[in-house]
Structure formats: C-alpha cells, structure tokens
C-alpha cells in the first residue's frame, strides 16, 4: 500500500445551524481497507459519510480523499470553495450506495447503470452497456437488465445500485446503511456482494448495523456516538472486548 491514505479526517466538525453533528472526528482509511462505522442513530455516521462525498460541507478540520482536500481547493495556504463542476469531478471517483437505494425509477436496471458513465465520462453506449452487463453479472442479476426498479425486490435493487456505483470505476465506495431498508431475508445477498467487493481490494467505508458483517469483513471498526469517535480498532477486539462503557452499553443491545 502507498503511504497516502485513501481517506483522512483531521478534527472534522460539521454543524447544522446550532446543532453540531460531528465533533472533531479524526480517522484514517488506508487503500484497500474496509472500515465499518457503527453506532446509534443520530450519532453522525451518515453525515460523516456524506461529508466524504461532499454532499455535506465540512465546517472545521480537514478531510482528504487520496491526498486531495474534499470540496475545497488549497492554494497558497488558503481554501477556496470549489466550482460545482470541479466538485462533481471529485465525486466521480467515489461511489455511494444509499439506504433507500435511490435507483432512478424511470430507467431499467441497465439504463440506471450506463447513465452516469455515458453522461459524465462520455463512454460510448456500446462500451457502457458491455461493462454494465458485466457488473450485473457480478452482482448476480444478469437476467434483470431490462427490469424497472419497481419490479425488483429490495435486495435486487440494492445490488443494482452497487453495480451502478461501480460502473464509474470508483477508488472508494461508501455504503450508507445498505441493508437497513431490506427484509431480513434479503440482507444476505447484498452483504455477499459487498464481501466479494471487499475481497477484490476495494476501499470501503460502511455504515452498518450488521455486526456479523463488520466482524468478518472490516479491517477497522469505529464506534461513534454523539458525533464523536468513542472507540476504534480491530473489529473482533472492539466487539468482544469493548473498552468504553458507552460501547459496552450499545453492543449489549445489538449483539
């Protein structure tokens, strides 16, 4: 692994009005690493994830992806707000998967996947389609290429959403509670796809409540509460032997 971490947060804070959601978060994700963020709802996990993608703007601290400051440009020691175009360019390399899938309902699975590569990266339709079919096959949905999202189960929709994000060839994948909106029966198929992805060496940050997945796949587990990192470390270590009282209390309820 190279020395530049994929994601590096240094005392990152974020407030919505007077409500401070992130309080001086510092953490690092190396290339090829999988980091799982766990914690009670409202602890700032999702907000942190959205900051990495610049869907939210950080108020304080410094957040870099692959060595580049997110959402700002650094010139002569000053930070400048980015033009929307440049910000969009930054996001191309970061795939994001949402809790509620957010597939485009007016497009088929295939069209969902080829849309961004064609529009943003100007890939030809033939190339984009070939790649999309490959990705659909990878998530086990080759035969669903022409189905509209409304005709797919939640698990299938989420797998299409993952394929859609992968079609942009991201160097980092963000998962925002990818299985929380799914029926218990369908959780497994999505986690399976994510495990494969982790094995293939993708750098991933996963906000999740699936402790089994975290234990199995994550290199680092971070427990957040009230906008601060309470505990971080090896997942098995943190899950079986939590040091902080807050972590113990949380884990005793979810495990």
């Amino acid at each position: 692994m190279t020395d530049v971490p994929m994601v590096r947060a240094e005392r990152v804070s974020k407030s919505f009005g007077s409500n401070q959601v992130l309080k001086s978060i510092s953490l690092e994700v190396k290339k090829g690493e999988v980091l799982c963020l766990v914690g009670p709802s409202g602890s700032g996990k999702s907000t942190f994830l959205r900051c990495i993608n610049h869907l939210e703007q950080v108020n304080a601290g410094r957040l870099t992806v692959d060595g580049v400051v997110v959402g700002y440009e650094e010139r002569d020691g000053l930070l400048y707000e980015l033009k929307p175009k440049v910000a969009a360019k930054q996001r191309q390399d970061i795939g994001m998967v949402f809790q509620r899938f957010n597939l485009f309902p007016h497009m088929t699975a295939l069209e969902n996947i080829i849309e961004a590569p064609m529009l943003v990266k100007k890939v030809s339709k033939a190339d984009a389609t070939a790649r999309a079919l490959e990705l659909l096959d990878r998530v086990g949905l080759a035969e669903k290429a022409d189905a509209y999202p409304a005709h797919l189960s939640g698990g299938q929709q989420q797998r299409v959403a993952i394929a859609r994000a992968l079609a942009m060839d991201p160097k980092l994948m963000l998962f925002d509670e990818p299985t929380s909106a799914l029926d218990p029966e369908l959780v497994g198929e999505v986690l399976e796809v994510m495990k494969d992805l982790a094995k293939s060496g993708m750098t991933m940050i996963v906000v999740t409540h699936e402790m089994g997945f975290a234990r199995e796949v994550a290199d680092t587990l971070v427990f957040m509460d009230g906008g601060v990192v309470v505990e971080a470390g090896d997942p098995t270590e943190v899950l079986t032997n939590p040091q902080r009282q807050r972590t113990q209390a949380f884990l005793s309820k979810v495990l």
Partner: peptide, 9 residues
C-alpha cells in the same frame, strides 16, 4: 443525491 454522487452536474 444519487445523481450528484455519481458525478452528474
């Protein structure tokens, strides 16, 4: 958000 996250303007 999904479109934005995909890098669409």
């Amino acid at each position: 958000e999904a479109a934005t996250a995909l890098g669409m303007s």
